[in-house]
């Protein structure tokens, strides 16, 4: 661990001041501290924001929900409003271990960095960690890497399950800038694909602070659920996952919100799958046909070819599961 200084702030103003001077925000620390220990991250100043008043979960008009950035994952997972409105989001949060859920916050969750083992090994080449050094994963062991959204610079998977649900539900992120101005960013624009700048992971500006994430209102009833496949049954990142939400009225799918995780550099919104569902009547054939589009555009690597088929099957399974829910 490199030497660093630590500041604890007690209000948003102080946080923004410290952030604008280059401080790195820390709350639960479940990503940052790990990476500092491995010397992957070497911030000079960390700014502890865990005392800020960003810990509320509030219902919004019309049936959406707003979750403060500092709400612990464990609290959000157990929240009755989130569970009744968006089970898919509550379930996705449960993809993490209990220890992580207790420490990690909602804001930190969507800021978490990749589990790519080359990224986490400072002796390996990694464009994300050290721009221009190369990508060891492309020609290395890449079973866990992305088949979608990658570039010739980076194929690291975004590890958050919760972000997959946020992507499916077209959530947005509320940010506050050091000059005090607030802005709201669609979640789809918040996380960045690697392209030629894999070290840029979020569309967040120097010193900007996440204050909350908001899931919009949907017509009701909305059936939703999350499926995560992994090598072992707990304490493991996903091989493939699917977040599905369906609004069915009069025997016809009126709204379909679908995203996949574990397979892409950012949570992967499956718009083609959604289009194939809307206006159709639920049936096993429909699930299969819609899921055929799940891996469109996939560019598999040496060790992750199986994910192309696995992704389609995961999406099909979860469409059926949600479609058959009462």
């Amino acid at each position: 661990m490199h030497p660093f200084s630590y500041t604890r702030v007690s209000n948003v103003r102080e946080a923004l001041d410290a952030g604008s001077r280059g401080g790195r925000y820390i709350a639960g620390g479940t990503t940052l501290v790990d990476l500092m220990r491995e010397t992957v991250e070497t911030p000079e100043t960390i700014v502890d924001i865990s005392a800020l008043p960003l810990g509320d979960i509030t219902a919004t008009a019309g049936g959406g929900i707003r979750i403060g950035a500092l709400v612990p994952m464990a609290v959000a997972t157990a929240d009755p409003k989130l569970n009744s409105l968006f089970p898919v989001a509550a379930q996705a949060l449960r993809g993490a271990s209990a220890q992580l859920r207790n420490m990690a916050t909602i804001g930190g969750n969507i800021m978490q960095r990749t589990r790519c083992t080359y990224f986490r090994d400072v002796t390996a080449d990694c464009n994300k960690r050290e721009p221009g050094s190369g990508c060891a994963a492309l020609g290395g062991y890449n079973r866990g890497h992305a088949i979608l959204g990658g570039s010739d610079q980076c194929v690291a998977v975004h590890a958050s399950d919760f972000a997959v649900a946020l992507s499916a539900l077209e959530a947005s992120v509320h940010l506050q800038a050091p000059d005090g101005r607030n802005r709201r960013l669609p979640f789809a624009d918040f996380l960045l694909r690697p392209g030629s700048t894999p070290h840029r992971e979020q569309a967040i500006r120097q010193g900007e602070l996440i204050t909350s994430v908001e899931i919009p209102a949907y017509p009701r009833p909305l059936k939703s659920a999350y499926l995560k496949l992994r090598d072992r049954q707990s304490y493991s990142f996903g091989l493939a996952s699917a977040a599905v939400a369906l609004h069915v009225r009069g025997g016809v799918i009126r709204e379909a919100k679908v995203a996949a995780g574990g397979v892409a550099t950012v949570p992967w919104k499956l718009s083609a799958v959604e289009r194939a569902l809307v206006g159709e009547r639920p049936s096993d054939r429909l699930w299969a046909e819609a899921a055929r589009h799940a891996a469109d555009g996939a560019r598999p690597l040496q060790h992750n070819r199986f994910k192309v088929e696995l992704l389609k099957r995961t999406v099909e399974r979860q469409l059926r599961t949600v479609g058959e829910m009462e």
Binding site: T117, T123, G140, Y141
Partner: peptide, 8 residues
């Protein structure tokens, strides 16, 4: 190098 040298 061993790629997965951690309990994660």
């Amino acid at each position: 190098r061993i790629v997965n040298a951690s309990l994660a």
